[in-house]
């Protein structure tokens, strides 16, 4: 299979459970070496994890012994900035995700949504070119997830970040249609790309619109298990 992602593009990968979406994402991030093939970032091979490709996990990971600010500073360590500069950048990243007033709070004093914002700020602080997100909203309640989804696109592609592209894995088709510019659909065994759908809707997207629902329907049909599609004729 071949995948690519372009500048200012949010690409989603969807598919039935167990098809290998998260594994594919980890391969893209250099966390797993592919048995065959390769990953390239701006033409350079990706053979190991790099801050240039940041990963946001499905389960929300923050370090409980570090404050929100210190958590974000982790993303800056490799840049070897001065202490003041490190502090300034970390605070700017917290502001970007709306947590400027919570810099000295510990994660356990925060909700799941706030923790995920810390994780995003930490990833963005590393100045990545590509952000990989593995079902980033799946552990949040629907209300919090919806709120974060509405903000995330502007956060990720705002002027404050170095990001040029986002790849997200998700099960939630409404979420996918709401956020994606393009969708890859994985299916079958062994998994292959069975479809590629461009979501041609203006932002912000209206989840109640007919066109939106139509896209959800298209994707739904494509991720149905291949055998059941066959049996339904």
């Amino acid at each position: 299979m071949n995948l690519y992602t372009l500048d200012d593009e949010l690409v989603c990968i969807i598919g039935p459970s167990g098809v290998g979406k998260s594994t594919l994402l980890r391969i893209l991030g250099g966390f797993i070496r592919p048995e065959k093939g390769f990953v390239r970032l701006l033409g350079e091979p990706v053979t190991r994890p790099t801050p240039r490709i940041a990963m946001i996990h499905q389960s929300i990971v923050t370090f409980p012994w570090l404050t929100a600010l210190e958590n974000v500073k982790l993303g800056l360590r490799y840049r070897r900035l001065s202490r003041d500069e490190e502090d300034r950048v970390a605070r700017r990243m917290l502001e970007l995700v709306g947590l400027q007033d919570y810099a000295d709070f510990y994660p356990k004093q925060m909700s799941g949504g706030m923790r995920q914002r810390i994780a995003i700020a930490r990833a963005l602080a590393a100045e990545p070119l590509v952000l990989l997100m593995d079902e980033p909203f799946s552990h949040l309640d629907e209300w919090t997830a919806g709120e974060l989804r509405r903000e995330i696109y502007n956060i990720l592609f705002g002027k404050e970040t170095t990001l040029r592209s986002v790849v997200m894995v998700s099960h939630n088709l409404v979420e996918v249609v709401e956020l994606a510019d393009r969708v890859y659909v994985l299916n079958g065994l062994p998994a292959t790309i069975v479809g590629e759908v461009r979501i041609d809707l203006e932002r912000p997207r209206d989840v109640m619109s007919d066109k939106f629902r139509e896209y959800v329907g298209i994707l739904y049909k494509m991720i149905m298990p291949i055998r059941s599609r066959v049996s339904r004729g």
């Binding site: 966390f31 994890p49 990963m55 982790l74 360590r77 590393a126």
Partner: peptide, 10 residues
Amino acid sequence: WDIMDNLSLG
């Protein structure tokens, strides 16, 4: 481990 690798922590 992922985060430490990803952020290239020494």
